[in-house]
Amino acid sequence: MEDLIEILEELQPEVDYETTENLIDGRYLDSLTILALVSEIEDKFGVEIPTVEIIPNNFNSAKKIWSLIERLREE
């Protein structure tokens, strides 16, 4: 989780990732940041994120992104 927050802070530093729960709906992360985030996550955590998983519900908070990574790791 700490690694993920580090990635997020590097990509978009102006957000408090511990508390923000509307990263997509609140437009904190735009589509370009999502592209960078996906490639960084895949690189760092060795998972492949299918495009069907790129929905606000999976990316609206750091916790949700982390759950997605864990789920993809298990699959």
Binding site: L32, L35, A36, S39, E42
Partner: peptide, 21 residues
Amino acid sequence: KKLTVKSRKVLGNHYGPLISG
């Protein structure tokens, strides 16, 4: 995706994904 990974290394976090985007 490959293009994004490569371009991010050269152009950084914002301009890297900009090409494929």
